[in-house]
Amino acid sequence: MMNRILLVIMIVLGLTAPFFAYPVFVMDLLCFALFACAFNLLLGYAGLLSFGHAAFFGGAAYVAGYALKEWGFPPLLGILTGTGFALLLGTVFGYLAIRRQGIYFAMVTLALAQIIYFLALQLPFTGGENGLQRIPRGELFGFIDLNNELAMYYLVLAIFLIGFGIIYRTIHSPFGEVLQAIRENESRALSLGYDVDHFKLMAFVISATLAGLAGATKALIFQFAALTNAHWQTSGEVILMTLVGGLGTVFGPVVGAITVASLSHELSSFGSWVQVILGVIFVFCVMVFRRGIIGELQHRLSRRKG
């Protein structure tokens, strides 16, 4: 019930947002929201903490940007190329990372992601510290000019809703149920005959791919693939977004992404104090607010019902 209300609110807000908010900012929020939802699928439902999701987000941004700029791909094909790269990368990283469990999993993903960061910094065609700049937005289907902010906005909204829909369907499928079973008790799921590693890898690949979709879309919006998108701090930010909104809730990451991204935006004039504040929120969430905003809301509602 609550999810339906939230879904309606989200769609209405999404459709009307460009009329009362700065479209580019809302598009940025949508990218982070999709990124956080993709991350949440892995941590919230499969119980796997990836500390390297920036590799998919940032890596896809670079590949999409390169395809759009150097190969002259049309916008959708460019985004798909970036997303496809994230899928491949997710398969390789996932295959390696699921060989270790728990805390090691987090360290392995973090270290693997650092390879992508260094590649983005050092390869001759990535623009080093400047990133990949002046990526053309091009024309959607050959006739809708994406330099029009409104056209761009509704494309981004459509991409977000498709990505969100995929995640929603995944969570509420038998596959999603098995993931939650693995999260709750891995050895029991194994003894029930589920190929645990296979399920974990699938979850990892879906999550990485959608994180890549978000990153590739971001590159198109800002016409810029930035090195910071591939930095470990971005991996940390997406964890924070998910945590603030509510781990393992459908809408939590969306709320968390909006909260954290708006906060960073509002505080951007305070320089590195932003980092301190984000750190304090991190500590606060871990210590006393582990359910997150949506999780806490759900908890209160269900308690009131008795």
Partner: peptide
Amino acid sequence: LLLTFGITLILQGL
């Protein structure tokens, strides 16, 4: 791990 990550951000930012 998440707690100590938050502490890292605080120290580094300071």
